[in-house]
């Protein structure tokens, strides 16, 4: 039995004694042992009791290995911290060693085939008149499907697209009277070649691809001409005439890629 100093925090401070009478234990019997069994028997409140044991050595080593791994993983698969890199795998090494055979930086754009490019260009450029079916509009815009101007020699076709075609026209015995503008100002050689490659191989058409170089050559050859063609002028161009520098090709189908 020793004298115990009660911890400071346990000393009643606020309430005078008479207010506390009968309050303790909420009007139940004052026998903590039986009524507060749960509290009376419980161990003391947990507290820090000055134990400051360090990490076990093996754990410290393990954490260091983990940190090392993390740094390496972040370096190799962090995509160079670029916001346009989504596949960590094909960029990781390339990001830091651009000469590595996996290729550098972001992946190159997938090149469209001339046919695909032509298809999407056709939608924006030609479809309004010639229609997505290539059938044109009776009386106004001639069909492209099966048209002799389309699947014949390239020279005729490219000439028309470059300079345009005015006035009456007869295709498959049907007459049309529309105005086609020249496209040389708004479409470059690559686009014209792509559109015509598409047109020559869609809707049952089968003809050779049109090369951008040929279009460029014809563009240069016709540079001095300002006005559009009319039907007789176009028909004056031989039906199987190729583009400048090109091989003569007739209506006989070349190897159609599609």
């Amino acid at each position: 039995m020793s004298e115990h100093k009660i911890p400071e925090y346990l000393i009643p401070q606020k309430y005078p004694k008479h207010e506390m009478e009968g309050r303790m234990d909420y009007n139940e019997a004052a026998d903590v042992g039986s009524l507060h069994g749960a509290i009376a028997r419980e161990k003391g409140e947990p507290a820090y009791e000055g134990q400051n044991k360090r990490l076990p050595n093996w754990l410290t080593v393990f954490f260091c290995v983990l940190l090392f791994w993390s740094g390496g993983y972040l370096f190799l698969f962090g995509g160079g911290f670029r916001n346009d890199v989504f596949s960590e795998r094909d960029t990781a090494a390339a990001m830091y060693f651009p000469k590595s055979p996996t290729g550098g930086g972001a992946a190159p754009e997938v090149e469209k085939t001339p046919f695909e490019l032509g298809k999407s260009l056709f939608t924006g450029t030609c479809q309004a008149c010639h229609q997505s079916t290539g059938q044109g509009v009776p009386g106004q815009y001639p069909p492209l499907a099966g048209s002799e101007f389309v699947v014949g020699g390239e020279r005729r076709l490219v000439s028309i697209v470059l300079k345009g075609l005015q006035g009456p026209l007869t295709i498959h015995g049907q007459s049309f009277n529309g105005q086609m503008p020249g496209w040389e100002a708004s479409l470059n050689d690559k686009k014209i070649a792509a559109i015509l490659t598409y047109v020559r191989n869609e809707w049952g058409n089968k003809a050779s691809d049109v090369s951008p170089e040929g279009v460029a050559a014809l563009r240069a050859e016709l540079a001095s001409r300002a006005e559009s063609w009319n039907e007789s002028e176009v028909r004056a161009i031989p039906e199987t005439a190729p583009l400048p520098g090109g091989k003569e090709s007739g209506p006989a189908p070349a190897a159609a890629p599609h």
Binding site: I11, P12, M20
Partner: peptide, 12 residues
Amino acid sequence: ETEISGKTPVVS
């Protein structure tokens, strides 16, 4: 403060 019934501060 935590109030408890008025025991004497020093108990034996």
